[in-house]
Simulated assay, not measured.
Amino acid sequence: MNAIPLYILAAVGEIAGCFAFWAWLRLGKSPLWVIPGLLSLVLFAWLLTRIEADFAGRAFAAYGGIYIAASLVWMAVVEGARPDRWDMIGSGICIFGALIILLGPRGG
């Protein structure tokens, strides 16, 4: 499978898992939110290991850019807060960096 869809799915898993803890600890939701949160975080970790990369660090570094963009989408869709231009500029820079890591030519 292509790395980009895996990164996006992993980001959704991580963000959903972390948001479950946020909802419990910051928004006063039930502690039962932790259960789907933990399952989401396990799914995130599993998906990230499906990335074809020679080194875990490179896969994780490229993921960072995707995570940042996905977090802003989450903020808009789930939390109802529109990212501002600085969010969008920063996210664009991070995506560009992630693409360099993912697609950069590697010497043998």
Score class of each variant (00 low, 15 high):
A62T: 11
L41C: 05
V34K: 05
L72M: 15
G65V: 07
W46R: 08
R82P: 02
W74D: 08
L27E: 11
W22C: 08
F19Q: 01
A53D: 09
A69L: 13
Y63I: 09
L48W: 06
R82S: 15
V42G: 00
M75F: 06
A62I: 10
V77W: 14
I51W: 05
V73F: 08
L39P: 05
L27S: 11
L39I: 12
A45M: 14
D54T: 14
I66D: 05
S30I: 06
A56E: 02
A23S: 13
Y67L: 15
V78C: 01
W74C: 10
G57R: 08
E52M: 08
P36R: 00
A70V: 12
V34W: 04
R82V: 15
P31M: 04
A81T: 11
F44G: 01
L38K: 07
R26L: 11
I51H: 01
E79W: 13
A59W: 03
V77F: 12
L27F: 03
W22F: 12
G80R: 01
Y67M: 09
A76H: 14
W24D: 01
G80S: 04
F19K: 04
V78Q: 10
S71R: 11
F55H: 15
R58S: 02
F21H: 09
L25C: 01
R50I: 03
A23Q: 12
L25H: 02
A59T: 09
W33F: 13
A76W: 15
S71Y: 09
A53R: 07
F55P: 00
A20H: 08
Y63E: 02
W33R: 03
D54Y: 01
P31I: 05
A20T: 07
A76N: 11
G64Y: 10
P31A: 03
A53L: 00
L48F: 02
I51T: 04
F19Y: 13
G80M: 05
W46I: 15
I35D: 04
L48N: 00
Y67D: 09
F21V: 11
G64A: 06
R26D: 00
G80N: 04
L38P: 03
L27K: 12
L27D: 01
R50M: 14
S71D: 09
G80I: 07
F60G: 00
A23R: 12
F55G: 00
V78T: 12
I66A: 10
W24C: 01
V42P: 00
A23Y: 12
V73R: 03
V42Q: 07
G37D: 07
W22E: 08
L39S: 03
A20W: 03
A70N: 04
A62N: 05
L48T: 04
V34M: 14
R82Q: 13
F44W: 04
W33M: 09
L39R: 08
G28Y: 05
L47F: 11
A61C: 06
Y63F: 15
A59K: 03
V34Y: 11
G64K: 06
V73I: 15
L72R: 14
P36F: 01
A69N: 00
L47D: 05
V77C: 07
